[in-house]
Design a protein around this nucleic acid. Structure first.
Lengths: 337, 337
DNA sequence: TTGTACTTTTGGAGCGTTCCATTGGAGCGT
DNA sequence: ACGCTCCAATGGAACGCTCCAAAAGTACAA
């Protein structure tokens, strides 16, 4: 930091060079950990860096090196933590390769033009991970690798696809409940494509099994309140049920409250299964039985896939990866009485 | 996008200029919405931009203009949504001024050196918003404005401070409960400085009022499970209580489950107040009475304060802003029977 | 026609790095 | 003392923009 006109200006590589009595190039070498630098000079440079509190400008670095080692990830909104495990999985892999992840939600400045992807591309990310629902994003002529996580189809041409098999998820949930003796299993759904897939699978499977289909909350938001309201509807319908399959854990949590209000006990009276293995399902006193959507694994494999594009041979054709979900049996399900 | 050696290369301003038959400078003017450009050329440029799918390089822009119009925000972890309202408040103000917000958690690549602040400074953010607990970050010689949100003290020298008054928060909670006739009010606490402040206030106020102090869960995490376990302890202690003041809404939610397990009804038997007005307190079927920590307002005012530094006269001395919290009365509290 | 006053457009320098080709020494054998 | 090889260190071009000073064009009055 140098003082000019009483204003702090950020130190540049030249300031460091001068302070250390070397050339800017030598400083650059030290910065990048080049082994060809003599210990004495290296130390001098490091001292100068510390003294001046120098931090290299990534803008300049990126520009000069034509690399950013940065991956962009687009999510719908921070409040919906579904992305959380995926992010952890991505980081696990990318950290090892010294890639950075830039997380962005769909919020964009109304004044500025361009959506989340535009913003990311402008920042020269080397690839994008899309964890958003209908992806009405500007992905036209996207010249970097893209992978869509969590959806089984996309309009992003050339993008890889990775998702966990929702059909199979519904299947293992229903198998589990049926094995426990349940016959009247209601489904709590919600808005959106993911809930839609699970619903479709539920309907199909119940049909195959010749069991009654009861779907509620299709037009509700996929959160606790939605689950609560859907359950109220279910109860009001007067239809008999001994188990509930909720399209996600928040909906399941809402269902539990609604049931509690009418004196129904979980799992004593009603068994409940959620989906996603969200934090709430673990923290919740109830310890929800749920489907692990393998977010961590999705993240890991998405990262590997991206690395293949980035480091390996360029033009691979779009790949589609399907991960098998798994049932996490906890305490919200029990044998039918 | 031009095809060179079969590899897509991003279009630059020169490519656009050539395609539009103008100079790179003219393209730059169009990009920045300069009014001195003739309609004809403007249109030609815009057509070329679209055709080439050109997106300006922010790295180059930032470097050349010596501005990034970007503010960095540091949070502890994405999973803890406490920051959410603050972010919304920040955006509300910064959007209008065309500033972008870069959100970062404390996760840093173990291979790369530098913490979250280093990373942000390297990216040339113009100011930082710190929404992290003890802030053991490298803020030495930070040459950009910093504001610490949510803490009443900080080691970041020169930083502004903005927080809502936790003491007052505890005060209005307890006033509310006392007014409802409660005398035996337990407090559910948890790890961390914020919970600590609320706890301290609780202890002080109860002491003043000559009422029994019951604090549980000090060593628990501040989530649902923590609240659940703390409540179990409270119940096991055998001490009489008719109301609970929980250090946050998740703890309160956990408490409700624990109470339900022993047949205690909220608010019939026990009144509960949470803190933070977190999403769960609204969505939750229970409709939790809680303290709004004014996150939105914190965000707004933090943004205003930063703008004062950035646009106004430079060297202001550190300012400390305290926001008054407010009670949101919903359905988890009732008159003592 | 020429000059004046704008308005529109342009070339060039500069932003803080990286990377490469080159320079300058040190060390060693003869 | 001289050449040769190696290794360490350096200067300059380049990255893709912005911004400024200057050039080119346009319109109108004299």
């Amino acid at each position: 930091m140098t003082q000019i006109d009483g204003v702090n200006k950020k130190a540049t590589i030249y300031d460091v060079a001068e302070a250390a009595g070397v050339s800017k190039s030598l400083v650059s070498l030290v910065l990048r950990g080049d082994s060809a630098v003599s210990p004495a000079k290296r130390e001098a440079v490091q001292k100068a860096i510390k003294k001046l509190n120098y931090r290299p400008s990534r803008n300049a670095q990126n520009l000069a090196s034509n690399r950013t080692k940065t991956i962009g990830m687009v999510i719908t909104e921070y409040e919906n933590l579904a992305y959380s495990n995926v992010l952890i999985g991505l980081r696990e892999v990318f950290d090892k390769q010294d890639y950075q992840i830039l997380l962005t939600d769909l919020h964009t400045n109304p004044n500025l033009h361009g959506d989340a992807v535009d913003a990311l591309v402008s920042m020269d990310v080397e690839a994008v991970v899309l964890f958003v629902e209908p992806a009405n994003l500007n992905t036209e002529g996207l010249s970097i690798p893209a992978i869509v996580v969590g959806a089984r189809e996309t309009t992003v041409k050339g993008a890889d696809l990775i998702y966990s098999n929702d059909y199979q998820g519904s299947q293992i949930v229903l198998e589990h409940l049926i094995k426990l003796g349940h016959k009247n299993i209601a489904h709590l759904s919600g808005l959106g494509g993911i809930a839609g897939n699970r619903r479709k699978a539920y309907v199909e499977i119940m049909q195959e099994q010749g069991m009654p289909r009861m779907v509620y909350g299709e037009s509700q938001k996929t959160n606790q309140l939605g689950g609560y309201l859907a359950t109220k509807e279910l109860i009001a319908s007067g239809k008999p049920f001994t188990a509930i399959y909720a399209a996600n854990d928040y909906i399941a949590a809402g269902a539990i409250s609604a049931l509690a209000e009418v004196g129904k006990n979980v799992p004593g009276d009603i068994s409940i299964v959620g989906y996603d293995n969200a934090p709430i399902s673990r923290e919740y006193a109830m310890k929800l039985t749920t489907v692990d959507d393998m977010g961590l694994e999705l993240g890991r494999q998405a990262a590997e896939q991206i690395l293949k594009h980035l480091e390996g041979n360029k033009s691979q054709k779009p790949k589609q990866i399907v991960i098998e979900p798994s049932l996490v049996i906890r305490k919200s399900t029990a044998k039918k009485k």
